[in-house]
Amino acid sequence: TTQFTVHSPEQAEQWKEYAKQKGLEVHVQKKNGTWHVTIH
């Protein structure tokens, strides 16, 4: 599991796309103005 924080919805979307291409599961949670992205 990879977990990191991004600071814009655009970055979060890019990671979603990346994960989809790799066939991975991605979870994005918005918290205090940042987005926590978890890739399984």
Rank of each mutant, 00 (worst) to 15 (best):
Q11Y: 05
S8C: 11
K31V: 14
K30I: 12
V26E: 00
G23I: 02
T5C: 15
K30S: 09
E10G: 06
Q14V: 09
Q14W: 15
T38Y: 07
W35F: 10
W35E: 01
V37L: 04
V26L: 06
E13V: 05
E25C: 13
E25I: 14
H36F: 14
E10V: 07
K16A: 10
G23V: 02
A19E: 02
H40L: 12
T5F: 12
N32K: 07
H36N: 06
T5I: 15
E17I: 09
Q14L: 13
E10S: 06
N32F: 05
T1G: 09
T2Y: 15
T5W: 12
G23F: 03
K22N: 13
T2M: 15
E25L: 12
Y18E: 03
Q14T: 07
F4R: 04
L24A: 04
Q11K: 07
A19R: 00
H27M: 08
G23H: 05
V28R: 00
E10I: 06
V28C: 00
H40D: 05
V6R: 00
L24M: 08
V28N: 00
Q3E: 13
W15A: 04
K16Q: 10
G33I: 02
T2E: 09
Q29P: 00
S8G: 07
L24P: 01
G33F: 04
L24W: 13
H36I: 15
Q3I: 11
A19Q: 01
Q29Y: 09
H36W: 15
A19T: 02
Q14Y: 15
V26R: 00
A12Y: 05
S8Y: 07
T2I: 15
H40S: 12
Q3M: 10
Q29T: 13
K22I: 08
Q14E: 11
Q3D: 08
V6D: 02
F4H: 06
W15H: 02
E10N: 05
E10T: 06
Q29D: 09
H27C: 13
V6H: 01
E10A: 08
H27K: 07
Q29R: 11
V26T: 02
Q21K: 12
K30V: 13
H27V: 10
I39S: 00
P9C: 14
Q11C: 14
W35G: 01
E17A: 08
W35Q: 01
A12N: 01
E25W: 11
Q29S: 11
